[in-house]
Nucleic acid binder design. Structure first.
Lengths: 92, 92
DNA sequence: TCTATATTTTGGTGATTAGCAAAATACGGA
DNA sequence: TCCGTATTTTGCTAATCACCAAAATATAGA
């Protein structure tokens, strides 16, 4: 669970997650959105995978990444609840 | 704003925030809750202050830390909204 | 002014991290 | 099997980070 926070700490990774919110994308497509070398992005993907924030599917020579929205949601809700932050009302 | 995520990435700092949710505490009181040297905690306080997640008030020789709940709440809500995560319904 | 207490600042170390180039892997097609 | 494309792995460097001991700062009280 702590891996989620670590994953979110990096701005590039947050941007990757935002991009994946719109639609799933291949590793190469994602890499094109950044001014970074592909191995660098590949490392970021690995961190996001380790945190289970994204799922990957390999088709042919291409790897498609998809946002694992439930993990992100649970992590943020856990944090909100940990601090008794209800926002729009948490029903308690 | 990005400093908030960095601040939340460390488990010791998250624990400090949880402790401050219960009640405000002095630097020394907080330090006693951890198995870490005081300068280490002092560094964590500085990170939390830089992120504006805590406020400090000096009275005599003692510095009292208090949770800045609104900053934490705004940061988490911003993240939730950024990912269109409503949780219990975001009224849109 | 001297001492004790509370806290931060300084200076240093070891671990982790983000970045890159180059090499390796995996796959599809000729 | 050989080639080209997509992606990851490896090996490295520079920067950041958590941690500590020791020194510095600030305040209260004798």
């Amino acid at each position: 669970m702590s891996e989620v926070y670590k994953a979110l700490a990096d701005p590039t990774r947050r941007r990757i997650l935002e991009l994946l919110r719109e639609r799933e994308m291949s590793a190469g497509e994602l890499a094109d959105q950044f001014d970074l070398a592909k191995p660098t992005l590949s490392g970021h993907f690995a961190v996001l995978r380790a945190a289970d924030l994204v799922q990957s599917e390999k088709r042919g020579t291409t790897i498609t990444y998809r946002l694992n929205i439930s993990v992100l949601e649970e992590a943020l809700l856990a944090l909100m609840n940990g601090f008794r932050l209800g926002g729009k009302g948490n029903g308690s």
